[in-house]
C-alpha cells in the first residue's frame, strides 16, 4: 500500500490540518516510508491470533454509578477561547 498526493490532501482535510503543496510532496514521501516500514509486519503469520489491543495483562477497570464530578462550570469554561451565559461559544456551525 502507498499514498499519493491526493490521499495526503484527503487525510489533511479530515484532520483539519492545512498543508501546502510543497509540504504534500514531502509528506507523501515520509508517510510512505512509515507505511512500508509497518508493512513488514505482514510477513508474520497471524492466522487465528487475537488482535492485541494492549500490552497490559488486565481487563477494563470499572467504576460504580455514582456522581462524583460536575458543578464546576468555571473550571470547565476557564480555558475556553470564548464563553457566554454559561455556554461555550463558537462561530456559527449550523447546517
Amino acid at each position: 500500500m502507498s499514498l499519493d498526493k491526493s490521499a495526503v490532501a484527503h487525510i489533511a482535510t479530515l484532520a483539519r490540518i492545512r498543508v501546502s503543496e510543497s509540504e504534500k510532496e514531502q509528506l507523501v514521501h515520509e508517510l510512505n516510508k512509515i507505511l512500508h516500514w509497518v508493512e513488514q509486519l505482514g510477513e508474520i503469520e497471524t492466522e487465528g491470533v487475537e488482535p492485541m489491543t494492549s500490552v497490559a495483562e488486565m481487563t477494563l477497570p470499572m467504576r460504580e454509578d455514582v456522581v462524583t464530578d460536575g458543578n464546576r462550570r468555571d473550571d470547565i469554561l476557564g480555558n475556553a477561547p470564548a464563553a457566554a451565559h454559561g455556554f461555550f461559544t463558537v462561530p456559527k456551525v449550523v447546517e
Binding site: R63, D65, V67, G70, N71, H85, F87, F88
Partner: peptide
C-alpha cells in the same frame, strides 16, 4: 462521574473527561 439529569443549567454536569481536557482518562461505568 458527572450527572446525567435532564434540564440542568448549561455546563454544570461536565467533568474534565467530558470536556476532553488533556490527560483525562475514561473509566467505564
Amino acid at each position: 462521574g458527572a450527572a446525567t439529569d435532564f434540564g440542568a443549567e448549561p455546563n454544570t454536569q461536565v467533568s474534565p473527561v467530558d470536556a476532553a481536557f488533556p490527560g483525562m482518562l475514561p473509566v467505564i461505568n
